[in-house]
Design a protein around this nucleic acid. Structure first.
Ligand SMILES: [Zn+2]
Ligand SMILES: [Zn+2]
Ligand SMILES: [Zn+2]
Ligand SMILES: [Zn+2]
Lengths: 130, 130
DNA sequence: CTTCTTATTGATAATGATTGTCAACATCAC
DNA sequence: GTGATGTTGACAATCATTATCAATAAGAAG
């Protein structure tokens, strides 16, 4: 049986306070700075559970680090991410959903899934590098 | 100045002999089994150079491992990958290219790039699990 | 409230892919 | 052929992530 702990709630709250994809390490540091002492292993476990349960989305940074973001559950969506500051916008991608299914079927592939992420520079970061 | 070595050629040849995405470790094992003794660090360096020069495509497995595949240079494309055996098909994604640019622009993001991969079960693996 | 079962925590060690180090080596311009 | 220097490879180092496991605490039962 799953038990409710303040640690899991703290991780969830800290994740929802972020407007960008963050790593487990970063979230652990945030919780440490808040005075909330949650163990690193617990942060990893809580994030994995959230991702498995649909409460968070995850992707891998260019360096291979796993990043997490609080997620509006129930609806399939993708992300537009600033590669400089990490700020993230949820986006719909209906044309891509259709295309992915069609291209998989056309090649005889079954049970298609897809990874679709768009990276760029957000308005603020675009201005900064101008 | 860049020098040509048989090691780099061996890595390139071994990569082109694969029809699936493979890790540096796997390629190192292949070269070892062939009797061609190329150092692991050299395999990593050769693959990184190939990817940087457009001679290979790279992606990250679900476990975070970096995978490489020989690539037809010069043309932008994506991949349809069997999540069971790794066999890979290059695919065009013109509708997605347009969509990615449009959605980035609509949100004020500049210099858009995108990660688009489709995973599924290839015909052979689909039959095996039926 | 008390007790008991057991899921959970967290400090720490272990894992494993990737990168750094650096002396020995091999390539290539001259 | 020679020499300057890019390259190799065995090994150590790094670093994110996972496994361990004794101590803790959530929650059911009485
Ligand atoms: Zn930004
Ligand atoms: Zn989608
Ligand atoms: Zn397959
Ligand atoms: Zn594309």
């Amino acid at each position: 049986m799953r038990r409710n702990t303040w640690q899991r709630d703290a991780v969830k709250a800290a994740l929802e306070a972020q407007d960008a994809f963050v790593s487990a390490q970063q979230l652990h540091a945030v919780l440490r700075d808040e005075g909330t002492g949650v163990g690193l292993a617990t942060v990893y476990r809580a994030l994995a559970d959230l991702a498995a349960g649909g409460g968070a989305d995850s992707l891998q940074s260019a360096e291979g680090e796993a990043l997490y973001r609080a997620c509006t559950p129930g609806q399939h969506h993708h992300h537009l991410i600033c590669r400089n500051c990490g700020v993230t916008v949820e986006i719909e991608a209906d044309p891509v959903e259709q295309w992915a299914k069609a291209v998989a079927a056309a090649n005889g592939f079954t049970r298609p899934e897809h990874v679709v992420d768009v990276f760029g520079l957000c308005p603020a970061c675009s201005a900064a590098v101008s």
